[in-house]
Every structure is written in C-alpha cells, then in structure tokens.
Design a protein around this nucleic acid. Structure first.
Length: 580
RNA sequence: GGACCUGUGGUGCAGCUCGGAGUGCACGCCGCCCUGUCAAGGCGGAGGUCGCGGGUUCAAAUCCCGUCAGGUCCGCCA
C-alpha cells in the first residue's frame, strides 16, 4: 500500500492497493458499492470500488446499502479463508473484516450497469457521462491521457521549451476552418472568435523572443464531426526560432516517443520519413498506414495505348488484394460502389486464378496488359487486383481508400507505425475565384529549390510543410514559416491576396514581422488522436471526458441551447426567423 | 448538403424477410429465503407510446412514406 497521496481525512487507502502486506491493520476506505451479496441476516459481502480497484468487505449481519451507494468502511485487513481466494481480483487474497459501514450518500439504481460486461449504447452513456466515467475503461483512458500529457510536458521542458498560454478570445481571421463566433457585450455588433489553433499567436511569440514555445492548447473548429474530429480538440502546439525543419522533427519525435513509452511501456524506434509524392504514389494518401504492405502500382505506361475503353485515362493504378480472389460478386459490387462514391467512374477487378485472369474485362486485354496485371505487387494465384483509371490524384485517392478498407487492422491491433510525410505541395487546386489555395497555410515557407517556380509553375512548388502520421491517422502537421517579407508577398500574390487584403486580415502579424522576425518553424499534433490509438480506441470520444455527438450536441447538458431574452438583449443580437 | 446502418420494459438482445393478442432470453430492479459469496444461489413480482407522425390493411413492432435521435462515411476540416 503506497501511502501519502492516497490518504485523506476520510480514508487511509485506496481499495485497489490493499494487499497481504497490510494484513492485520485496521484501515478505512471510501468508494461506491459495486456489488452486494447477502446471505441472510448474518453475512453480507460488499464489493467496494474506487478508481484503483475493488476490495471485498465482509459485513456480519445485514446492511442497508444498494449498488452505487457511497460508503466509508473501516475494517481489518485479513487473509481470506482457505478456498475463498478470488484469483480474478487484484485484491482477491484479502478482505476487510469486522467492518463498520458509514453511508456517505445513497444512490438510485444507475440507468445502466457500470460493470464492463456489456457494451452500453453510446447515447445512454453520453446522457449519463458522469456514471460512464466511473467505469473502468473510461478511468483507464482518461488516466492514460493524463500520463501522456505529463510525459509531453516533461519532454518539452527538458528540451528547453517554455509553456505559454494564448487567448481563447481571438480576432476573426476568416480563412480555412469555420470559426466559432463569440459576440461582444461591450462592443455590440462586434465579435471575437475561438481559435482554430494558436497559429498566429505562437508566431508572435517568436517575434517576442520566446524562442522555444509550447502549449497543450485547445483548438476549436466549427466543422462537421467525425470519429477522429470533435469541435474542440487538444493539440501539443509548439514553435521554435533559429531552427530548420529537422530541428522541429527532432523536438516532436522526442516528445511523441516519450509519450509512447509512457503509454505503452516500450519506446518505438526512430521515426522514418517519406515525401508527400511518395506517400501518394505508393499508398494513395498523404497519411499512409504502414502497418500493412499492399502498395499501389502504376500501370499507366502499360496501358498508354490500350484498346480497353475503361482504361483510357491519364493514370491507371492497381492494387493487389492478397487472397481477394475469393471475394463474392456482391462484395466486389460493394467495393465498386465505394469507389464510385469516392468519385471513380468504376472499379475494374481481376481474380488471379491458375487458369489466368478472371474478369469481365479479361478478354479485352492484350498479352502485355494481362501479364502486367497478373504480376502487380508480386501477385499470386488466389489474389485479386483492383484497377482504377482516372486522373492521377483521383486514382490514387480511390485505391488508397480501398487499400485501407481491405487491409487495415483494427486500431487496437498491430504495431504503432509512425512516419513523417514531408515536402507537401505549397498549393492545391483553385478556389471559386480561380485563385490558388494554400495547402497548409499562407505563412508556409516554400522549398528553397522551388522559389523560382512560385510564379511560373506554382502547383509544382513544394513547401517546407510536414505531417506526422501514425497508423493511417494524421496526428499533426507543421511547417517552416516565412519570415522574409519578399517571399511572403510573392506567396500572397500567388494566392491572389492583395496587399490591402493581407493588411486587413493578417496586418498585426505582418506588422510585427517588420520589427525583427527570427527564422522560425513549428508543429502541432492532436493529443486526442494520439491517446485514442494508445488506448486502442477507434473513436476519440472514448478519450474525452465530455464529448459531443456527431451533430455537435452534448447529450448530458443539452447544449447547444437557446439563451435568455436578457442575454440576447445585452449582446444586441437579433434572431432571424426559423427557416430563413 | 448527401449515402448507409441502428432505434423493442432501466440495460443488452431476439422477434421484422413471410403482418395475426406486447411474445421471448439475459442482466438490472422490488419482495421473501439463504452463514463464505465474488457473473453468488433459490422462489415470487413489478416494469412496454415497439423513437415519433402519417399511410396501406379486417389486423402493423413487422409493409410503405415522412420525421427525430445516435453512429460510420462523402462533402467540409487553410
């Protein structure tokens, strides 16, 4: 029994830490009644639960407590009688005897059982999250999260970073994610926004001379929710001056690997890297899951002059599915539907059999084409080869998604496979006004070899932006920032942002840069996602104490809710009629 | 904005294809019995707007339409 921080004025020890070492001692524990087993009016067993575990108390005579009553029990730690040891309980060798039971709070029966025997509907759990939190899984997940936070802070401190808090009430800088808006009472008609990230604040900290900043920061984005996305999420945010990209990768690797060690007990090896172009080409995504092989193969050259109409496209990409030849027609139809929903015109499939290719398209292939398909990614008899012919990016995306659908192990399984993805493109696509869009953000430094292409061939300009990927989840991203006014103005120009617009949107940042901006770079990664993977959870809600549903509702508090007339008046707000 | 899945006593399920009385299982809850249980056991009992609304039908948990809630995904997430 470790003492000190367990003991309080009301208790001496935690339930889970009582052991044979304490036999003979009289001590007091507090907790919830997990289970009561009565044997008439002479004997009852109470399982007392706190976050550390369960301890059995033996009560002579009957006792008027029910499940989830909060009680304080004083008793003598005793060996259990021979033959009554419970091997499945950590404290199963001992029990409390000669107990006196004090009821601290009565409790109604809980709306769902708090033992872990059945999966309770998430709607029910969220409505009574405070009870769900009492359960072992949530206790484990949130305490794991605390351990990760602790190790991240320690790693950043040891690397000389200074923790600085930045405002939650920030200025609107419309761009990128939709912002949550907060009306100002003192300035009617004007608004704050909640930060999508502390991006601009941390760059100002660099100008301010905090050359190594970090923060465990809450970020808020008013975008649709997903299994790995909540309105509000937490990032380890950092920025450093007088550094290169490699310095940042080093800082972050150190922190993440420390956290991994704290969470899993084993420190992963060094984190490898690949370029964005390689990731897209081989895995069809910028967040490759490297836990399994299955790389995409480009057959464009083979099909350059093909007679097969379906393959008349700039890019022909193939994916080998080991053992996939047994897929039923309906399974193949399912995959085709998935490909179409991702934008593909269709999905070609080829079963590799001992008699050759089995496919509706097989008879249209010439020999070179058939040979190429039959040998995709080292294919063997019994495999399936899927082919998408389309524009390059789409073909990659479709097959990359199918690759994950067909090959990805559950989150709770497999090794943890980290990878840096570097050299992201500077720009991607154009907006409705025909202007280029920044792939990362407009303060990202282009790759030094590509400066000359900014005006001539912007879409091929690489940036000094990088992502950290774990098991196919994007943990976070960062970049070297632009600190030179000349480069910044060329980028703004390429993005179609006028001097006036730049001034009105980011004026305070650009203004600050005039007073001596150090070269700087940074990163931010999602702690929710990192902890979810450590915890083996498919969903970040499982590592968040009070999460929102997919529609953004909090089932416990009922948020979002209407506010009072008084509040509306104070804020000088006016509601538009419903449906307008 | 769109696609798909789910919704049945407090909880988890079955019933739905092929319409026929709210039928069943497990847990929990309430009462009684029980002196070594630990998924305690035995006996008895209570508990239902089959998410909601409409339609078809002699008859709807079941079929059809709509809607709400939850989930997964697409769009969205600089």
């Amino acid at each position: 029994m470790s003492q000190n921080h367990e003991a309080t004025s009301l208790r001496d020890s935690l339930c889970g830490s009582v052991s044979v070492a304490n036999v003979g001692r009289r001590l007091t524990v507090c907790g919830w009644v997990a289970k009561r087993r009565e044997h008439g009016e002479h004997l009852a067993f109470l399982d007392l639960r706190d976050h550390s575990g369960i301890l059995q108390a033996v009560v002579e005579g009957s006792v008027d407590v029910r499940s989830e009553y909060v009680v304080r029990i004083t008793g003598t730690v005793s060996h259990r009688p021979e033959g009554t040891v419970n091997e499945r309980l950590a404290t199963g060798e001992v029990e409390l005897t000669e107990c006196s039971v004090e009821i601290l709070a009565a409790a109604e029966p809980p709306p769902f059982q708090l033992d872990e025997r059945i999966d309770v509907d998430e709607q029910v759990r969220l409505r009574h999250r405070f009870l769900d939190l009492r359960r072992d899984t949530m206790q484990r997940n949130l305490r794991l999260r605390a351990a990760v936070n602790r190790s991240l802070r320690k790693a950043m401190d040891l690397q000389g970073f200074c923790e600085v808090e930045t405002p939650l009430l920030w200025a609107p800088t419309p761009e990128g994610a939709r912002e949550f808006v907060v009306p100002s009472r003192l300035h009617p008609g004007e608004f704050y926004v909640l930060p999508q990230s502390p991006q601009i604040a941390k760059q100002l900290l660099m100008v301010g001379g905090f050359d190594r900043y970090y923060q465990i920061a809450r970020c808020l984005r008013d975008e649709d929710l997903r299994a790995d996305r909540q309105f509000e999420f937490t990032q380890l945010d950092l920025e450093a001056s007088f550094v290169t990209q490699d310095d940042i990768l080093g800082f972050v690797s150190e922190a993440v690997l420390d956290a991994a060690e704290a969470a899993t007990g084993a420190r992963p090896g060094p984190i490898g890297s690949m370029t964005w172009a390689q990731a897209l080409d081989l895995y069809g995504t910028d967040k490759p899951d490297l836990r399994f092989a299955m790389v995409l193969q480009d057959l464009s050259a083979v099909f350059a002059a093909t007679q097969v109409k379906a393959f008349g496209a700039t890019t022909v990409k193939a994916l080998r599915v080991p053992g996939g030849a047994t897929f039923t027609r309906s399974r193949l139809d399912q995959l085709t539907d998935q490909a179409k929903s991702l934008g593909a015109k269709g999905l070609a499939w080829f079963r590799i059999t001992s008699e050759g290719l089995d496919s509706p398209l097989a008879r249209f292939l010439n020999e070179a084409e058939a040979t190429a398909i039959a040998s995709v990614d080292g294919a063997e008899v019994g495999d399936l080869v899927l082919i998408v012919a389309d524009e390059y990016a789409l073909a990659c995306k479709v097959l990359g998604t199918l690759r994950v659908t067909l090959g990805s192990p559950p989150v709770s399984e497999g090794p943890h496979h980290y990878v840096w993805v570097t050299e992201f493109p500077m720009f991607e696509g154009v907006d409705e006004d025909g202007n280029l869009m920044a792939a990362h953000h407009p303060f990202t430094m282009p790759h030094p070899d590509d400066y000359d292409l900014i005006e001539t061939d912007p879409l091929s300009v690489r940036s000094q932006a990088y992502d950290l990927v774990l098991n196919g989840w994007e943990l976070g991203s960062g970049s070297v920032r632009i600190h030179r006014a000349d480069i910044q103005s060329r980028i703004f120009k390429a993005l179609g942002i006028s001097d006036e617009e730049a001034e009105s949107r980011f004026g305070f940042l650009l203004g600050a840069f005039k007073f001596g901006a150090p070269p700087h770079a940074g990163f931010a990664f999602g702690i929710d996602r990192l902890v979810a993977i450590f915890a083996g959870e498919e969903n970040i809600r499982e590592v968040i104490a009070f999460p929102k549903t997919q529609s953004g509702a909090d089932l416990m508090t009922g948020a979002p809710k209407s506010i009072t007339e008084r509040q509306i008046r104070d804020l000088r707000l006016k509601m538009a009629p419903k449906g307008s």
